[in-house]
Every structure is written in structure tokens, then in C-alpha cells.
Design a protein around this nucleic acid. Structure first.
Lengths: 259, 259
DNA sequence: ACCAATGGTTCACTATATGAACCAACTATA
DNA sequence: TATAGTTGGTTCATATAGTGAACCATTGGT
């Protein structure tokens, strides 16, 4: 493994519940020698990607990632474009709307908007990692991905997040054809119990899916009349977001709303 | 130079007007061999920090920086905390309010809010690089920095951004004592002509300045009565932002507004 | 048609990275 | 209070990865 990849993989150890990590713990998490971890962390620190904090000198992400995020957004205004569309979806459906982005063989939650209508809502977490096989968003992405990507994803161990999570590769493959037909993926309790989500893929300028936009609701609120509202909102949201970022909706995608 | 630092320095070549860079151009900008650039870029790409775009296969920042920015924000909610305070400042002063963060020996613009009150306003750019010696924000940071940091900054070539930019190290040092007294730095046309800015430092939990909050206005609008409003707003904004991020205002800082 | 640029690749040679062992300081436990 | 175990951090003989001149196919400009 290249040195650069090794250093950057250290950054993957941070998450919402682990925003600060000490040197020894980082070495353990990364499976490398403490001296090696120290040197890699020092270079990341010199470059502004991490900094040391607190009296115990633990490490956390540095401000440089904020700057690069802004420059990334200047190139591909995904977060900016998502904000308005998610607000519209949350408004129309009265449920949680969110966007996630493919990263390797998983999804990363990018943005979410809650509806203020209900006291209970499906909660999202910034930068949360979602499964491709176990979420509506993931299935939406897989349905429009090349076969070799689908094969690679399904060849890996598939986590059973809930008793309802489908983990049989053939059963997952069978789910994909109807999703291609409808443009919409549904997942009921696949990632979190009692959560029913609808998702549609977002495409890049090559017509490849780069993520998905979704509405997630408690199962009890997803009645037949509401489903139709959610599907229409998600489908138009996906097309709108694809176009907002200069993406291209492939011809195989069923377009329920034209621009 | 370490390999990791070299790779990460490639990311510094992206800016608001250069969001996509080809392989050969990146090698030239970085002063390294094209084969080396290719290998480093490949590792950055595998890690999600950059991606290739368009028919010419040029590189741009990848989505991973968005995810890390969110995790950084979870650890140090600087952008989130800044938003409300900047809106208040822009509302009270009817001018552009902004926050910037120290990165090495320069400042990076983090967030800004425009006032809708005037047809003309001081424009800011996301992730813009500002000078420590030539901006109100920079001087605010320097005034409360350790002597060795001040010496290191002033030992480097100081860019004359406008005819009004002060570039004599001794003259700049002389500016710092009154700033320490008042807690506020002013800069008139030091970085951009016709722009008058007031800034105050933002501190971390060790009481060290990590950036500054500022109000920038066209010189013609900064009348004596408005100056007082701006100074008070900037000072209270700096203290509020310091506290919002768990920072500590050092005792040497003149506190115009207590929490 | 020719030239210059691009993105991308190869491999003998060179530079950097590694990690076992060590240190001082701190914390937990008996 | 003494001991053991943990922390962040460091060293340097050894091992591994990185380098870049030269090359390739393709594309674009003249």
C-alpha cells in the first residue's frame, strides 16, 4: 500500500462519535506501528489536515478540509444544489429528505433536511456511512451501475443491519430490475428498523450514478396515498439535482417529470 | 520532503479559478516529474480526495473532502457557529461580515455573509487566501500571537497587494500594540483598494488566536458614527464566536461585551 | 503532414519509510 | 506508596517504496 494511501486512510478512522483520536489508538485502529503512525500524522498535521487538541494532545481533523470542501463545492456545487431540492422534498413529503454520495463501495450521507411537521422523524447524521445493499439510496445507485460494480459490491460480505436486511446477493440482484423500471428504489427496515425509504439515483455528466436522493419516513406514516406523493417528489428531485450539477440523466431512466 | 506532504501539496494547486487541472499542468505547478505526479494523483484518487472529470480526464477535488469537512465541523463547529454570528454582524453593520482561519502563515476565508442593504458591497470568495500582514483579520491574529510566530511571518517576503499595503516589518510591528490595546485591527486598502475593514481575533481553548472575524466596507461608507457600531459588533462577535467553539478569550484581550 | 502538446507507462536507480526498542510522564490498581 | 500499564514521542539499522528519463499512443494546432 502506498504511503499516501496509508496516511489518508488514517483520516477514515474519524467519525461522528470519534472526532478525536490519540496516537496509540490511531496506530491500533490503522494496524500500523506507532512510530509510523506518528510520522504520517505529523505530515498530515503539517499540511493542515489534522491538528492536535486538548491537554492529551489527541488528533482531530484540521481546517484545511473545510477549505478544500469549499473548493470542491465550487467545482461541483452538490451541497449547494442539494439544499434547495431537499427543502422542497421535505416540504412536499413532510418527511426527512437526504442526499448521499458513492465513495468506493459505500455511500456517505452528504446533506439532509428534516420536516418540522412531525414530532417524530427519521434522524440522519452528517458524514454517516450507509450501505449500498441495505438502503434505498444504495439500491437506487446499484440498479443503474455497471454489472462489474454490482458484482464487486455483492461479492463482499454484506452486513445484516436489521433482521429485515436482505443479504443474499441473488435476492438483491432480483430487486434491481423493478427499480430500473420505476426509477425508484424502496427499502423497508433494511438499514434501520421501522424506516421506509424511497430513493432515486443522481447522475454525473457521463450518465453514471454518483449518489442518490431519498425520503425516509417511519413505516407507520407511509400509507398508499403518501407513497405516490413521495415517489413523484423523489423522482423529480433526482432529475432536478442531476441537472443542477451538470449531470446527464441516461435514456434508460424513466422520467416522470421533464425539465 | 515527505511523500505524504508532497501529495497533499498537489491539492493546494486548486483554487476558485482553477477547479480542474490536467496531469501535465499539475506536474508543472508542483515542480515535479509527470510520472511522480501521476502516481501521487492516483493514490489521492483511490482515497477519494480527487476525481477525474470531463473528456480530457482532468482532475478536481473529490467528495471525500466534503465528508471530512462535516466530521471536522462535528469536532469544531466553526462554520455552523459562524453563520449566525456573521448574519448578526452583517445585519447590524449593513456590510460584509466574514470569518477566516489561520493556516500556516496565511489566512483562509471560511465563511461570509453579505448585507442586502447596499447595491455595492465588498465581495468575498470561498476558500480565498488572505495575507496576515495586509488584512485587518491578519493583523488581529498577529497582535495576539507569540513573538516567534510574528517574527516568522514578517521574515518572509511581504506582498504589496495595493499601493497602500504596509510591507515594512518594523512598521507592521508598530501597528500591533494599539491593536492589543483595543482588541480591534483596522486595515484601509491594505489588501484591496477602497476597502476598510475591522477585525478581531478568534481564540481556541488554549487562548491562542486561530482566526479572525471581520467587517469589510467600502471606504466611503465608513463614517465616524458607523465605525463605533462596527467596532462594537466585531468585538462582541469575536468573543461570541470564541465561546461558541469552546475557545477561551485570554485575559489580555479587552472585553467590550461580556457573555 | 508535421509538430507540440496531452495522458499515461516502464524500470534501473535513489530516497524515504519502517518498526523494535527505548524514553519520560501519567494513570490505575493493589 | 509502590508497581504495572498506558500514554505521547524518539531513534537508527534495515527494508521498502518512490523517482524520473525515456518512451508510447492520441489529440489538437498550424
Amino acid at each position: 500500500m502506498g504511503t499516501v494511501s496509508k496516511a489518508l486512510s488514517l483520516l477514515s478512522n474519524f467519525n461522528q462519535s470519534r472526532t478525536e483520536i490519540g496516537l496509540s489508538e490511531m496506530a491500533r485502529l490503522a494496524g500500523i506501528n506507532k512510530a509510523t503512525a506518528y510520522r504520517l500524522l505529523s505530515e498530515l498535521q503539517e499540511s493542515g489536515f489534522i491538528e492536535q487538541a486538548g491537554t492529551d494532545r489527541s488528533y482531530r481533523l484540521g481546517a484545511e478540509v473545510l477549505r478544500l470542501a469549499r473548493l470542491r463545492e465550487a467545482a461541483v456545487p452538490l451541497t449547494t444544489a442539494s439544499r434547495g431540492i431537499l427543502e422542497r422534498l421535505a416540504g412536499e413529503t413532510h418527511e426527512t429528505a437526504h442526499v448521499s454520495i458513492v465513495r468506493g463501495m459505500q455511500l456517505n450521507a452528504l446533506a439532509h433536511v428534516y420536516s418540522p411537521k412531525h414530532a417524530t422523524r427519521v434522524m440522519m447524521e452528517d458524514a454517516e456511512t450507509l450501505s449500498l445493499h441495505a438502503t434505498g439510496s444504495g439500491l437506487a445507485v446499484l440498479a443503474f451501475s455497471p454489472d462489474d460494480f454490482i458484482d464487486a459490491v455483492l461479492a463482499r460480505p454484506l452486513t445484516r443491519h436489521t433482521p429485515d436486511t436482505v443479504t443474499d446477493p441473488d435476492a438483491i440482484r432480483a430487486l434491481l430490475a423493478p427499480i430500473r423500471e420505476a426509477g425508484i428504489a424502496e427499502s423497508v427496515g433494511g438499514f434501520e428498523a421501522e424506516v421506509h425509504s424511497h430513493a432515486a439515483p443522481v447522475f454525473n455528466s457521463d450518465g453514471a450514478p454518483i449518489g442518490a436522493i431519498a425520503v425516509a419516513a417511519p413505516v407507520s406514516r407511509v400509507t398508499p396515498d403518501r407513497i405516490e406523493i413521495i415517489r413523484r417528489a423523489v423522482l423529480s428531485g433526482a432529475i432536478e439535482l442531476t441537472r443542477a450539477i451538470g449531470g446527464f440523466v441516461p435514456e434508460c431512466f424513466p422520467q416522470a417529470a421533464a425539465a
